[in-house]
Nucleic acid binder design. Structure first.
Length: 398
DNA sequence: GCCGGAATAC
DNA sequence: GTATTCCGGC
């Protein structure tokens, strides 16, 4: 297998990050200038904070709030927009997370949300009836579902969003969930909270394994209940990886992409592994976030980093760019997933003036200058060991 | 309010 | 593909 370096395989990256990794430093148009001029749309609700946002113990990275990161679409999607509003304090009176339910949110002012959405999309005639129709289309996609009996209340399916936005996430790591049952804890995949309810764990594992098997073009022995039938995030733009090495097979790190969109071998994909946890990472749920029950949180908070040795993985000190699941795992996770999922330098990107013009870019996230160019011979510098990874995961619908 | 079909736009 | 628009039905 040929090892590939940065700058190759731009198409592979395109669906993941259609934004420049140095986006914090440069304005970019998100709509055709003509349209922007006519409606004067602005990026209302655009986040202004750092690259990740904590939700229910995990961080939603920028992609969750940026239309450009939506596979198959260069325009903002409604669920992105909803997340945008949800993470902004100033819209708390308009839309907010529902206390006590993970991923559940309430539209407190439907007319205002519709107005904002219409403004964003340059659809002044937008109203809640139309907006809610768009939301209902998410039901079948399993991105969202309605909380029955509660007015204006919906719930995100976070696993689904992960599958959609991170089709390559952890592709190398986990064995099939059905193979994990009964396995000793050290052999369980990464990123799982020790207190995670089994159904959640299983759901997550299935989603991950669905990715692995889908990308590998393999068949699941027993089939997949969720992610497989979802055709991998609507199937738009998800790169296929071709042959799949055995789980945990060591391989060169961070060698991604290939010319002509040729699927690289999975050995080329080294997922982020075993970072150290911030000492306070279990207390990261802030006022913007849904409540996280204690039993879902990391049980030991005194010295969590000691539980995540990550042999071979030297401590990383740079800011963590923000990632789902992995976000809660500390800077090391971001460091490694950055290599895994961020667009390398020099790749073509689509400009987005609205976002850039809003000054929402954080100079701390000048990723392009931080991207590690993999060195030849830099073979799997971090242990593929996964068992100590832990994260908090919100509840998904059944 | 909520649902989902249908036609349509982009 | 992802909405937007409209609408009949519950």
């Amino acid at each position: 297998m040929r090892e590939l370096g940065w700058g190759e395989g731009a198409e592979v990256w395109d669906h993941l990050w259609a934004v420049p990794i140095s986006r914090k430093a440069q304005p970019r148009p998100s709509l055709p200038p003509r349209k922007t001029m006519h409606c004067g749309c602005v990026a209302e609700g655009a986040p202004t904070g750092p690259g990740s946002h904590w939700i229910s113990g995990l961080a939603f990275p920028d992609w969750a709030y940026k239309a450009e990161s939506s596979p198959g679409s260069r325009q903002i999607q409604l669920w992105h927009f909803i997340l945008e509003l949800l993470q902004k304090e100033e819209f708390r009176h308009v839309i907010a997370w529902q206390q006590g339910e993970y991923g559940e949110f309430v539209i407190k002012d439907p007319d205002e949300v519709a107005r904002l959405w219409g403004h964003r999309k340059c659809k002044p005639q937008m109203n809640y009836d139309k907006l809610s129709r768009a939301l209902r289309y998410y039901y079948n996609k399993r991105i969202l579902h309605k909380t029955k009996g509660k007015r204006f209340t919906y719930k995100f399916n976070f696993s689904r969003l992960i599958v959609i936005n991170y089709p390559l996430w952890e592709v190398r790591a986990p064995p099939a969930p059905h193979l994990l049952r009964g396995a000793p804890a050290p052999f369980w995949p990464a990123l799982l909270p020790m207190g995670m309810p089994s159904e959640l764990l299983h759901s997550l594992l299935l989603a991950q394994w669905a990715m692995v098997e889908h990308l590998a073009g393999q068949q699941t022995p027993r089939g997949l209940p969720e992610a497989a039938e979802d055709k991998m995030g609507s199937g738009s733009g998800a790169p296929r990886l071709g042959s799949l090495p055995a789980p945990f097979q060591p391989g060169p790190c961070c060698l991604l992409g290939s010319p002509q969109d040729e699927p690289p071998g999975l050995a080329s994909f080294t997922p982020p592994l075993l970072p150290s946890l911030p000492a306070s990472w279990t207390h990261l749920s802030g006022p913007l976030l849904p409540h996280v029950p204690p039993e879902w949180q990391f049980p030991g908070t005194s010295k969590p980093d000691t539980l995540l040795p990550g042999p071979g993985g030297p401590p990383v000190t740079r800011p963590f760019p923000g990632l789902p699941l992995l976000a809660g795992l500390g800077q090391g996770a971001g460091e490694r997933l950055r290599l895994f999922s961020l667009r390398p330098q020099g790749l073509k990107v689509k400009a987005c003036p609205m976002i850039g013009a809003q000054g929402r870019l954080d100079p701390r996230e000048g990723f392009s200058s931080e991207i590690h160019r993999p060195k030849t011979g830099d073979k799997s510098p971090v242990s593929p060991q996964l068992g100590n990874f832990k994260a908090v995961w919100p509840l998904d619908p059944p």
